[in-house]
Structures are given as structure tokens and as C-alpha cells.
């Protein structure tokens, strides 16, 4: 084994991959949210449709989006490797455990939280990303240019209360995942400092509340608009 594979196979190396991919996904969430909030603009989806098509045609965004899929995959696969190794390190559980007195629920259940997020991602990508790429999509014409009218597909989906519920619940799970994951990633990278760590903790909690809440707001508002 070379030193690179040896390092990535160590417990710390595995965590390094989790932290780096996790932080990239956090960055992605911000960009994704900024784009999605355009769905709420009162222009029948014009800005959103133009934005979606521009992004899809931009070669840099294409590379980043392939990277994004790869990072999700790495994050998921390594989370399975870690969770399995961690279970093996404690094969017999305690009969009585007061883990709640020494750690947060989210920090102890990252695997469960992540699994629900993964299920959501599959539904989400099947519903929108796949449709946008391969589905039959109505078009809209702005300033003489034809665009795919993804806004219509999304508005249609969000008029279904069950679909909206899935989104809102999934965002709650994401919130808990981030409430621990955000600050945890910095600690994994060794970035712990008296001056900055308290700030990172606070920003992490703020991020974990605000970002998923804004994501959840979009389907809720669009559902109300559809009534």
C-alpha cells in the first residue's frame, strides 16, 4: 500500500474525506439555495428558467456538477465504511446507556440522518434533475429565445401536498445533520482554535437552521400559490 492509500484507509483519513466532501456539499447547498430562491420571484418562473438553462450549458458548472455527484458518492460510501467499522469496535452494547447526558442526539445519529437525506436525494434527483435532462419538458420563450420551462414542472410537483411534505421533512433531517456536521468538519480538519471555534459553532447552528428552513419555504410557498 502506498502512503496515500494507507492514509485514506486510516480512521483519520476516512474522516478527512468525510469532512472535505461534507464541506463541499455545504458550499453546494448555498449555491443551490441562491438559485432556487428565484422560484419565488413573481415572474412566472422567467428568472429561474433562464438561470437553470444557463447553469446547465455552462461547461464549468458541468464539471462542478460531476464533482458534486462524485463527492456525494464518496461521502455516502465512506459514511458506510466508517459506520461499519465503528459498529465493529463496539459489538456488545451497554444494557443501560445515558449517552444523552454527554452528547447531542444528532451527533450520535449521523448515519440515520444521512440515510434519510440520501433517500430524499434519490426522490429529488429522479423528480427534477432526471426530468430536466431526459424528460419531456414544456418550453417558454423569453426575448425570442426558447427555454425549457422547468418552473412549470416544479410548480406542478409542489401543488401536491405529499411531495411538499417529503421536502419539508427531509429538510428537518438535513438541519439536524448540519447542526452537528458543520462544526464537526472543522474539528476533523484540525481547525480548533480558542478565537474561532466558538464562532464556527454558532455559524454552524445558524446555517443548520436557516438554510434548510429556506429550502423548505420554497415548496410551502409554491403550494400555497397553487391553491
Amino acid at each position: 500500500m502506498s502512503w496515500v492509500t494507507k492514509t485514506l484507509n486510516s480512521t483519520l483519513g476516512k474522516k478527512l474525506l468525510m469532512a472535505l466532501t461534507g464541506l463541499f456539499l455545504i458550499l453546494f447547498l448555498v449555491v443551490h439555495l441562491a438559485g432556487n430562491l428565484q422560484l419565488l420571484l413573481p415572474d412566472e418562473g422567467e428568472s429561474f428558467n433562464i438561470y437553470a438553462q444557463t447553469m446547465a450549458n455552462n461547461p464549468i458548472i458541468r464539471v462542478v456538477s460531476i464533482g458534486n455527484f462524485a463527492f456525494i458518492l464518496i461521502h455516502v460510501i465512506w459514511s458506510i465504511l466508517l459506520t461499519r467499522a465503528n459498529k465493529k469496535a463496539r459489538p456488545v452494547n451497554y444494557a443501560v446507556s445515558k449517552a444523552g447526558t454527554n452528547s447531542t442526539w444528532a451527533s450520535r445519529n449521523m448515519g440515520i440522518l444521512g440515510t434519510v437525506i440520501l433517500l430524499f436525494l434519490i426522490i429529488h434527483l429522479r423528480g427534477f434533475w432526471y426530468e430536466f435532462k431526459f424528460g419531456e419538458i414544456p418550453t417558454a420563450v423569453y426575448d425570442g429565445v426558447t427555454y425549457k420551462n422547468v418552473f412549470l414542472i416544479i410548480a406542478e410537483a409542489y401543488s401536491n401536498i405529499a411531495y411538499v411534505a417529503v421536502y419539508v421533512v427531509a429538510m428537518a433531517f438535513l438541519a439536524f445533520h448540519l447542526s452537528h456536521g458543520f462544526a464537526s468538519a472543522f474539528q476533523t480538519l484540525g481547525l480548533n482554535h480558542v478565537k474561532y471555534s466558538p464562532l464556527i459553532q454558532k455559524v454552524g447552528i445558524g446555517f443548520a437552521i436557516i438554510v434548510p428552513a429556506l429550502f423548505a419555504l420554497i415548496p410551502i410557498v409554491m403550494y400555497i400559490q397553487s391553491l
Binding site: T11, N86, K88, A99, N102, R108, M110, H180, A183, T188
Partner: peptide, 10 residues
Amino acid sequence: GFGACTNTGA
């Protein structure tokens, strides 16, 4: 055979 760290802080 010790496990990895999830930074739970326990």
C-alpha cells in the same frame, strides 16, 4: 480495532 471519531464530544 478502536473506532473512528464522530466528534460527539462524549
